[in-house]
Design a protein around this nucleic acid. Structure first.
Lengths: 248, 248
DNA sequence: CGGTTACTTGAGATACGTCAAAACGAGTGG
DNA sequence: CCACTCGTTTTGACGTATCTCAAGTAACCG
């Protein structure tokens, strides 16, 4: 089992992000499937009013477990890894945040997990107070948030099922299927090709396996012609066999 | 691995539940730590207005995965088991609902898991429409619900960590600690004694283990004088060693 | 008191973990 | 363009925690 050490916190430097409504702008595409879709144009403007664009370099920490929740983030580009670290170095990845996802929205006093950037990440930062105040003014934003939380809950439930009752091969099949669905929802990906932005170690820590088992399982799926392993991702060759692995 | 079969749905028969404010009434004790604590007296009356008391016999199904969410429940007595069933009979218990807990509050179209009674259960039932309407009228009820959901999320996160990165012994230690905290929050239990309303099989399916492993682990903890196994529960003999198992 | 269900215990099998080394890819510098 | 380093991924051989199968014991219930 790989031993992990806590990574030091590095402040996020504001990035150059114009943040004007524009169909070609990455942020605006993100909006279509983010919580912002629940907002009317004038409310969106209000949200932008309190948004601070930030960016993180690869491996930067966004926040650590136990930190006071002072900000809420909306990811606009890149992938964030959410995890909990044991004193002895064991690590469990709780989930990944992709563009459109919110972070820290539970508005608890302290963060219950660590979050750091896998590769370059752009996000919008809201101060907790601003966001909370906006939420109080906009009941249907609150409702949208609740629905989003319900979706996250469902995802975590699936993870519990995977970790509790699935074999290594089934877990990897489920993981790939999940990644694919997420990419499809975001509109990118041609369907067969699945980008995998995270390392084998991250996948292992997400699926409750070791890196060796994950690697062997990928190799096995490739040997069985279920997928072809490519640079930074995978190409699905046999939809059905992957689907069978992922099904409950 | 034990094979489970779906249980048939049995309608809930209304029970005799006076449901009047009264300090000795079980329902009223429950209110203190339920979402109802967020309500002013007149609002509570409004909630009672739309509440239908129901009860379930042991092993009754409350709802099954895929059922339309037509009702929301607030447990007032007993324990409910939440789980997902695989086609091949594997079962993963997602969680347990104790007095004060809400069920179906995510207001999704369909239930994402099965729920059935362990032993006798009493609950308040709200129609989805009524509850939803009340929620729309009372923003701070919505907020309370959101906080409740955040707590449930945190619980599920802990389960992910347990299933992904803990040994059998650690999982059982975590489980007992969790049961104890829940009982303490409800005000019952003398601290040392922990009631365990669910079967070994339920615990196994919750912790992603087999019933044999759970049983052996309990025996091991008893052999090490960490707990004494009693009828329908356990007595904690060595707080520290249990705590160590449960710690991250 | 007999039947049924839940729990415990033992012996052997296996999926996954551990340890070690090789292969690969991305930089970096000569 | 090649040699070298460093981190990631893959592969192999072996160990072990947990599962499986099977039998025994205890608790429950009519």
């Amino acid at each position: 089992m790989t031993i992990h050490r806590p990574i030091s916190l590095i402040g996020a430097a504001p990035s150059a992000c114009a943040h004007r409504p524009d169909a070609r702008c990455e942020n605006c595409k993100v909006r279509a499937f983010s919580i912002c879709a629940a907002l009317k144009p004038d409310e969106l403007a209000e949200l932008e009013e309190i948004a601070h664009p930030v960016s993180f370099a690869a491996k930067d920490s966004v926040f650590a477990e136990g930190d006071a929740v002072s900000n809420v983030y909306n990811v606009t580009a890149g992938t964030i890894r959410l995890y909990q670290l044991f004193r002895d170095g064991r690590r469990q990845v709780i989930g990944f945040s992709f563009p459109g996802d919110f972070l820290g929205v539970q508005l608890e006093a302290e963060h219950g997990f660590c979050a750091d950037a896998i590769g370059e990440v752009s996000a919008c930062r809201f101060s907790r107070a601003d966001f909370s105040a906006l939420l109080a003014r906009k009941p249907h934003l609150m409702k949208a948030l609740h629905e989003r939380t319900a979706r996250d809950m469902r995802l975590m439930q699936d993870q519990v099922v995977a970790l509790g009752r699935r074999s290594a091969e089934e877990r990897v099949g489920w993981f790939l299927t999940q990644l694919r669905q997420r990419a499809a929802r975001c509109g990118n990906g041609d369907g067969e090709r699945v980008d995998i932005p995270m390392s084998r170690q991250d996948i292992a820590d997400y699926l409750g396996l070791t890196i060796e088992t994950v690697s062997r399982t990928f190799s096995g799926l490739a040997r069985d012609k279920a997928v072809r392993i490519e640079q930074g991702g995978v190409r699905v060759l046999n939809e059905a066999s992957l689907g069978n692995l992922a099904a409950v």
